[in-house]
Design a protein around this nucleic acid. Structure first.
Lengths: 341, 341
DNA sequence: CTGAAAGCGCTTACAG
DNA sequence: CTGAAAGCGCTTACAG
């Protein structure tokens, strides 16, 4: 069974391919009657446009690329879901690619998508990325970029993110208000803007509440893993016996830290309060359940797609393309790993 | 900046487009020297083939569709990772689509991918699917299908799965060997082949160990969720006070059931032993940690892609296409939710 | 309102 | 070894 072509419809109705094409696309200069006949025939013959030919002719693919660090991660898989849902509604296809947090893979991936002639790219940067040449190249080649979650401040493009400083501030403030005095922060990778901003929020909160900021109370987690959380908690517990509150970048790391704390026979939250970040499903079912910061993922995906779409539309209509930055709201979810207010 | 075309390379070297094309594809009837010159020029001009044109000409897209019930699920996101990793190595692009376990969406999705002219489709069926018309249609239109994990026995195609009967048997057997007498099974949806086979394994194990199979000890979970697990556990605890062992289809459901059991003041595993299925990360960090069945996901994705790829290759070479069914090994991971042997 | 013709960028059967 | 030509299936500027 081979596909029906415009040619075949034209033949069957004894009119030209041109007219068939115009009729199917409802051009105004085709008679109502012809449009009707053509559409009926197309239906009957189960005609589906050959997208390769359409792409080649129109020079657009109705395909976008989505680049994320890692799909096996609830936050990002939710992003994927938001993006693909929205894309589908608008007749777009999404190619999902992962960098595994490697800068080199990120460069290759962008290159690959450009070669595949996607109409635009949605990207959350890898934590290693400090050079943005590949993104500028994409923009120069007329493939617009929208960044979400893991962004670079210096690249001129639309961005969708949360207010990490504010979210971290609120988490730290909650620890302080529930009585914690010696606050530790487990920070994320050095180049991650999220990590930088969350550390900043932690600092500002300490300052506002007249608590000293101590460099040695900030622990670096190069990767967001259970093991890393456990390891740094081990180090922390060996070094500082006074810690009574922890604000930890990412729930997964927090869960690792909690395991170590519990293994040492310390009580959460009585001895040490813990707040995570992301509100993974995980955090609601571990013992004790984890107080954390919920961040929108599904809607971040949807909104990111729509920003890219409007940019593509404007480009096609030669309307001026402007860049926007949207901050989505976060929420502190209070559970059992922190003391009552 | 617009893209370099074959035309431009030809012009710059004063040879024909034909020769350029052949040279780039290393046809044997082009001189070494020409090949060299052409490749050098292509490199210099940063030539990238226009994939739309190539697709249109060669009638293949080097794109496959991947259909899964739900991406926000560790098992499936791992599958996606396995598939995309392997696809990329082979120059293929993957379009990921979700059915959200809806049969109608599954039909639409298959239709969509056929229209997009993917070379083949990888699919895990929705739990609602009982009619396979859409899959046969895809095969008739020359778009091969490979099924994984959630399959239909009656469709003739290659399949990649685990031996659910055996895996369930081993889990149930472990409960029996650790001393459980009154065994309950939480089964999955009625039409899910996985669920059917796991129930079967549970039954056979009971039989082999001379324990009675009781219809009322099988609880139906229409969906695999935390809430469903809690709800059915509630029902079970109200109805049957003697239960001392549970084999639960899917970790997530098991975690919900455990929450209910703990809320009732019962001890796991002292009062009731629990075994889940899937080995989510989650199971290793809850309290008590959950004994479960590990099933390969990443490698299932890789293998599924490779089976589809070889089918596509055979098709192109007019080699006979044969269907295979591959069973991947599972492993019982013993943790703290079951008694020692 | 309809249609002949050009062309998007490639590949390949064929001729020389 | 090289190249002229046809053609994949569509869209669109142009003529009538």
């Amino acid at each position: 069974m081979s596909r029906t072509t415009l040619q075949q419809i034209a033949l069957s109705l004894d009119i030209s391919v041109t007219t068939v094409s115009k009729a199917l696309n409802s051009y105004p200069d085709v008679s109502k009657k012809t449009i009707e006949r053509v559409k009926e025939a197309a239906e009957r013959l189960n005609y589906k446009p050959n997208s390769f030919a359409v792409n080649l002719r129109t020079q657009q693919s109705k395909t976008i690329g989505l680049i994320i660090p890692e799909i096996v991660h609830q936050f990002f898989s939710n992003i994927v879901k938001g993006v693909t849902d929205e894309a589908e509604k608008n007749g777009y296809v999404v190619i999902v690619m992962q960098t595994n947090q490697k800068f080199n893979r990120e460069k290759e991936t962008v290159e690959f998508l450009i070669n595949k002639q996607v109409d635009g790219i949605l990207i959350a940067l890898s934590d290693e990325t400090v050079d943005y040449e590949h993104l500028l190249r994409s923009q120069n080649l007329d493939t617009p970029i929208v960044m979400f979650d893991k962004i670079a401040n210096t690249v001129a493009c639309s961005k969708v993110l949360i207010d990490d400083v504010k979210a971290a501030y609120e988490a730290t403030e909650h620890l302080i208000k529930t009585g914690c005095k010696e606050l530790v922060h487990f920070r994320g990778p050095l180049h991650s803007q999220n990590a930088i901003d969350r550390l900043e929020g932690y600092k500002i909160a300490l300052l506002d509440y007249d608590l000293p900021f101590k460099e040695e109370n900030v622990y670096l987690c190069e990767e967001m893993s259970f093991d890393m959380g456990r390891e740094q908690a081990r180090k922390m517990l060996d070094e500082n016996a006074k810690v009574d509150g922890m604000f930890i970048n990412t729930d997964l790391v927090a869960v690792g830290a909690m395991a170590e704390i519990k293994d040492r026979g310390l009580k959460i939250p009585e001895d040490i309060s813990v707040i995570g970040f992301s509100n993974w499903f995980l955090s609601s079912v571990i013992t004790p359940s984890l107080t954390t910061v919920a961040q929108p993922s599904f809607s971040m995906g949807k909104i990111s797609f729509n920003m890219l779409l409007s940019e593509l539309t404007n480009k096609r209509n030669n309307t001026k393309v402007t860049h926007e930055t949207i901050h989505l709201p976060t929420e502190l979810i209070v559970r059992d790993s922190t003391l009552p207010l």
